[in-house]
């Protein structure tokens, strides 16, 4: 990676839900072009961290910097327009829309047509613009190998495909940074391998910086450039995959009981 400037910086993020402290003064940086993973036991605060970055939650304290600017006060849609995309841990597709329309929604902030020019479709340039973006969306569809279901209603698809459509929708935003919350959860081995390949390609070929939450240690160790470990809302380590695996705190807090899994992969 030639560039090493940080695209994202979280500074002392704390998040409180009533008595629950989901995050406590977590700071980290993600470099431009990195594939960065966040791991930790259930309830560690990983999703909460992504929510603070995407704007779903406003941190109780701390700031988020994206491409050098403080985005903490921005709403999620303003952040999307600045090049931030994400997927959800629990599927969040537009279930009555076709796969194609789901992905086209990702182009929202890139499209200029509105209710007026859209309503006179043929005359105000809306048709031309829609078709241009349709072409870009077809590239994404080809890349994620979902062309056979492009007309299907999203809600009728099996789980693994829905996950893929959700990824396609986030890619359609043309994000500089994409946040993936457990993209492989509930998938079989083959689906996981495909998904891992897509993520690596997005990072390497499409030039997207990736922050990924994932429980599958094999995949995480395999494809991540750097890893951060959360436990009870605190950052207990960050570093290269090798460093994380040999870190004593991490072993104790998280990997301890799953030593065999790690061993298997390494």
């Amino acid at each position: 990676m030639a560039e090493s400037a940080s695209i994202l910086e979280a500074r002392d993020i704390s998040l409180q839900f009533g008595g629950v402290r989901a995050l406590s003064e977590v700071s980290f940086q993600v470099k431009n072009g990195e594939l960065f993973s966040i791991i930790g036991p259930n309830g560690a605060g990983k999703t909460s961290m992504l929510n603070c970055i995407s704007g779903r939650y406003r941190p109780t304290a701390g700031q988020v910097f994206f491409k050098g600017r403080d985005i903490t006060p921005l709403t999620p849609n303003q952040r999307a327009a600045r090049g931030l995309g994400r997927t959800f841990q629990n599927l969040a597709l537009f279930s009555h829309m076709s796969v194609l329309d789901n992905i086209m929604v990702g182009r929202h902030h890139l499209l200029r047509n509105n209710f007026l020019s859209g309503a006179i479709y043929w005359f105000g340039g809306a048709q031309r613009e829609e078709l241009e973006h349709r072409r870009a969306v077809e590239d994404i569809i080809d890349f994620l190998e979902i062309s056979h279901i492009r007309k299907a209603t999203a809600g009728t698809l099996p789980y693994g495909l829905r996950k893929r459509v959700e990824l396609a929708r986030a890619v359609a935003i043309k994000p500089d940074l994409i946040l993936l919350d457990e993209p492989m959860a509930g998938m079989n081995l083959e689906e996981k391998e495909d998904m891992a390949r897509y993520i690596v390609d997005l990072n390497e070929e499409w030039g997207m910086t990736v922050i990924m939450i994932e429980h599958d240690m094999g995949v995480v160790m395999d494809i991540s450039h750097r890893i951060m470990v959360l436990d009870f809302g605190r950052k207990i380590a960050d570093g290269l995959p090798g460093e994380i695996m040999s870190n004593e705190h991490v072993k104790k807090a998280y990997l301890g009981e799953e030593d065999d899994v790690v061993g298997e992969v390494a």
Partner: peptide, 25 residues
């Protein structure tokens, strides 16, 4: 026409899942 262009899709997205609609911009 409205319903097959940008703002119409935004309406339907808003109906189906407003939280992810917001994340989509």
């Amino acid at each position: 026409n409205l319903l097959r262009s940008r703002d119409g899709r935004a309406f339907v997205a808003l109906r189906d899942h407003y939280l992810s609609a917001e994340v989509m911009g």
